[in-house]
Design a protein around this nucleic acid. Structure first.
Lengths: 122, 122
DNA sequence: TTGACATATTCTTATATGGGAATATATTTG
DNA sequence: CAAATATATTCCCATATAAGAATATGTCAA
């Protein structure tokens, strides 16, 4: 089996950084024509259109035609599954004190150290 | 350019559903040997090893050797970027009704104010 | 109609996947 | 050492990108 399609679910859709950039433009909840996104992100128009198409297929954005423009709007509710999922782990970093955070930081430090040695094992 | 590697960042790593299943097993913060994950998820051992490998490369899990076992532990802090990102949109569903009502009231107010001069919307 | 403008779609191509099967690499134990 | 156990790695392959270039489609305006 190959990797799941980017349109398979919202998790796959938002994995692409440029798609998150597009979302960022729409983040204020207003509607934007494709070309407004193009100008703001300085991305080629076909690139933006394709990314918007993926986001639309998973429901993260909605589109309405208005004249010769197609207005895209963020449908943020579709991002909730991501929020719900990651929220489960919130306690690991929000709880200001405790062994959990401490341990996480220690592990992160260990990782930083081992990065210098390459990803190999002992 | 092809799709970014699953090991490119945590967003790509968690896009794979089975990887989230593995994370779910480790979610209690305890350490697990590969085979414990294999048994719990009823996945082939190589599959689990490969997914753990990806998660380790992005730092989501850490590993220590203990005897003939390799113990994996969740490093939940690495999921924080996902949380931080999606948290931006939290308001869209947390107080959904309130938001809608609030916006409607604001719009109504704007209409009342601009009744005389015919101001157009943004 | 003829342009001009806005957007989508179709190719191509290099690249990476995830699963299954088989195999390799430890590590412990007898 | 040899066998058993635990885990990682390699190979194969069908599939799906994402970007760029070129083109098609759609819509307004004179």
């Amino acid at each position: 089996m190959a990797r799941a399609a980017t349109t398979a679910d919202v998790f796959n859709a938002i994995a692409e950084p440029r798609r998150r950039e597009v979302i960022a433009v729409l983040a204020d909840g207003k509607e934007y024509a494709v070309n407004e996104v193009v100008v703001r992100l300085r991305m080629p128009q076909p690139t933006v259109s394709k990314h918007l198409s993926v986001l639309r297929k998973v429901g993260v954005v909605s589109m309405v035609k208005r004249g010769q423009h197609r207005m895209y709007r963020l449908n943020a509710a579709e991002l909730k599954p991501v929020h719900d999922w990651v929220k489960t782990f919130e306690r690991y970093w929000t709880h200001q004190l405790g062994q959990i955070k401490e341990r996480a930081e220690r592990k992160a430090l260990e990782r930083m150290i081992s990065i210098d040695n390459g990803t190999k094992e002992d």
